[in-house]
Lab assay of single mutants.
Amino acid sequence: TDVTFHVNGRNLHLKGADEELLRRIEELIRRGADIEELEKAVKEWEK
């Protein structure tokens, strides 16, 4: 799945995201995470 999140005026584009990653990103956004936290979560998922 390709999806782009718009967070605090910045874009986080995910290519090939699975349901697990999407749920994790949505949860972080609900908690008020900043873009750096979201990018870190994506990097951890990519490993």
Rank of each mutant, 00 (worst) to 15 (best):
Thr1Ala: 11
Thr1Asp: 07
Thr1Glu: 10
Thr1Met: 14
Asp2Ala: 01
Asp2Leu: 04
Asp2Gln: 02
Asp2Val: 04
Asp2Cys: 15
Val3Cys: 15
Val3Trp: 11
Val3Tyr: 15
Val3Met: 11
Val3Asp: 08
Thr4Ala: 05
Thr4Gly: 08
Thr4Glu: 15
Thr4Cys: 15
Phe5Glu: 13
Phe5Pro: 08
Phe5Gly: 13
Phe5Ile: 15
Phe5Met: 14
His6Lys: 05
His6Phe: 05
Val7Arg: 01
Val7Gln: 03
Val7Asp: 05
Asn8Thr: 02
Asn8Ile: 01
Asn8Gln: 05
Gly9Asn: 03
Arg10Glu: 15
Arg10Thr: 14
Arg10Gln: 15
Asn11Gln: 14
Asn11His: 15
Leu12Glu: 00
Leu12Ile: 11
Leu12Lys: 00
His13Gln: 06
His13Ala: 05
Leu14Ser: 00
Leu14Arg: 00
Leu14Ile: 15
Leu14Phe: 04
Leu14Pro: 00
Lys15Arg: 10
Lys15Leu: 06
Lys15Ile: 13
Lys15Cys: 07
Lys15Asp: 04
Gly16Gln: 07
Gly16Pro: 01
Ala17Phe: 04
Ala17Asn: 03
Ala17Thr: 04
Ala17Gly: 03
Ala17Met: 03
Asp18Asn: 12
Asp18Ser: 15
Asp18Gly: 11
Glu19Leu: 09
Glu19Ala: 14
Glu19His: 10
Glu20Leu: 14
Glu20His: 12
Glu20Asp: 13
Leu21Asn: 01
Leu21Trp: 02
Leu21Thr: 08
Leu22Pro: 01
Leu22Thr: 05
Leu22Lys: 04
Leu22Asn: 01
Leu22Glu: 02
Arg23Asp: 06
Arg24Glu: 10
Arg24Gln: 13
Ile25Val: 09
Glu26Asp: 06
Glu26Gly: 09
Glu26His: 11
Glu26Ala: 12
Glu26Trp: 10
Glu26Val: 14
Glu27Phe: 10
Leu28Asp: 03
Leu28Lys: 06
Ile29Trp: 08
Ile29Cys: 03
Ile29Gly: 01
Ile29Asp: 00
Ile29Gln: 02
Arg30Ile: 09
Arg30Val: 10
Arg31Leu: 13
Arg31Gln: 14
Arg31His: 13
Gly32Lys: 03
Gly32Asn: 05
Ala33Ser: 08
Ala33Arg: 07
Ile35His: 03
Ile35Ala: 02
Ile35Asp: 02
Ile35Thr: 02
Glu36Met: 07
Glu37His: 08
Glu37Ile: 10
Glu37Met: 12
Leu38Arg: 00
Leu38Gln: 00
Leu38Trp: 01
Leu38Phe: 03
Leu38Ile: 06
Leu38Asp: 00
Glu39Gly: 05
Glu39Lys: 06
Glu39Tyr: 09
Glu39Ser: 06
Lys40Asp: 14
Lys40Pro: 01
Ala41Tyr: 15
Ala41Arg: 07
Ala41Leu: 10
Val42Leu: 07
Val42Tyr: 03
Val42Gln: 03
Val42Asn: 02
Lys43Met: 11
Lys43Arg: 11
Lys43Cys: 09
Glu44Arg: 08
Glu44His: 10
Glu44Pro: 02
Glu44Asn: 11
Trp45Gln: 05
Trp45Tyr: 14
Trp45Gly: 05
Trp45Arg: 05
Glu46Thr: 12
Glu46Met: 11
Glu46Ser: 11
Glu46Gln: 10
Lys47Thr: 12
Lys47Pro: 12
Lys47Ile: 12
